[in-house]
Computed example of a mutant assay.
Amino acid sequence: MKVLVVDDEKLLVKGIKFNLENEGYQVDSCHDGETAVQMARENSYDIIILDLMMPRVDGLEACQQIRSFSTVPIIMLTARSEDSDKLLGFESGADDYITKPFNILELKARIRALLRRASMPAAQAASSDVLTRGHLTLDPKRRNVKKDGAAVELTAKEFDLAELLMRNPGRVYSRDSLLNLIWGYDYQGDARTVDVHIRRLREKLEKVPASPEFIITKWGVGYFFAE
């Protein structure tokens, strides 16, 4: 597995690189967002660990630029714990975040969880049927989605969320249940994370995002996929 670690704190990068390489990962690194975007274009990474506050191009802008050409899972590192910063990270396309200072064991666990979701086990994928709902087609085996026959780029978490909802049309999921099912029971993030991902899914999958046909809000309860 190939990982890109991006942070202007060189000692932190060195420590992450050392620990991940001991786990068998191949690790590249850099110290600013501009270089990170260039490296992401020129290489095929399985996951990117990206700091929020960096010189030249910050983590938010770098994440947005990477998202314009790649769906690689991205973990955002931030020294600030405000919910607004975390939500901005998700808005820019990040799949997960960790607040500094963090335990390296937690980072490893987050990496494993994202990689596990991004590469569905072969046995599970082989038994998964293609889901078709109106103008949308979702292929769990290939982990791709098409809208009116055209491919739509989704992040790992967006795909997992879309698949869960499409597999269970009519079933209403609360924000907390979606956090547990998609992000994991040990996830400590804000429930508004779900709202951000739902909005992004609507923008990508619905013909008229402001008047969704499929991804519906059940006011005061949660979200469901129309039957």
Rank of each mutant, 00 (worst) to 15 (best):
A123H: 14
E42N: 11
F69D: 06
S127K: 15
V3E: 00
I47V: 14
Y187W: 14
A162T: 07
D148S: 14
D32R: 01
I47G: 12
F69T: 12
D58A: 12
N22Y: 07
N168K: 06
D186W: 02
R110T: 05
R192E: 12
W219S: 13
F159C: 00
D46A: 08
Y187R: 01
Y223M: 08
L165P: 01
F224P: 06
T193E: 03
K146F: 02
A36L: 04
A40R: 05
G93Y: 04
D160F: 00
D190P: 02
I198V: 13
M39I: 10
E163R: 05
L201T: 09
A62Q: 04
D46V: 00
F102E: 02
D160N: 11
K100L: 09
E203N: 11
G222S: 01
G184C: 01
P73N: 07
V130E: 11
S119C: 13
M76D: 03
E61R: 14
L165M: 11
L52F: 12
R80M: 07
D8R: 08
V208D: 14
P140A: 09
R143G: 07
D28C: 08
I182G: 07
I104Q: 08
E91N: 13
T137M: 10
K157A: 04
V72G: 10
F214V: 06
K100A: 06
T99K: 02
L77H: 06
L77C: 07
A113V: 05
T99C: 11
L181P: 03
A118R: 13
D85Y: 13
E21I: 13
G15Y: 13
D51L: 00
L201P: 07
T71E: 12
T137L: 11
N19I: 10
K146H: 06
V172H: 05
L136C: 08
Y173E: 02
T193Y: 11
K14P: 00
M76T: 03
R133S: 14
I74G: 03
G24A: 12
L154F: 02
L165N: 00
H135I: 10
A150F: 00
G59V: 12
S174T: 15
G33F: 08
S127Y: 01
R112G: 05
L20R: 07
A122P: 03
W183F: 15
E206M: 09
V152N: 00
M120E: 09
S128K: 11
A151S: 13
F224C: 08
M1L: 10
L205G: 04
D96S: 01
R202Y: 00
C63P: 02
F18G: 06
I216M: 10
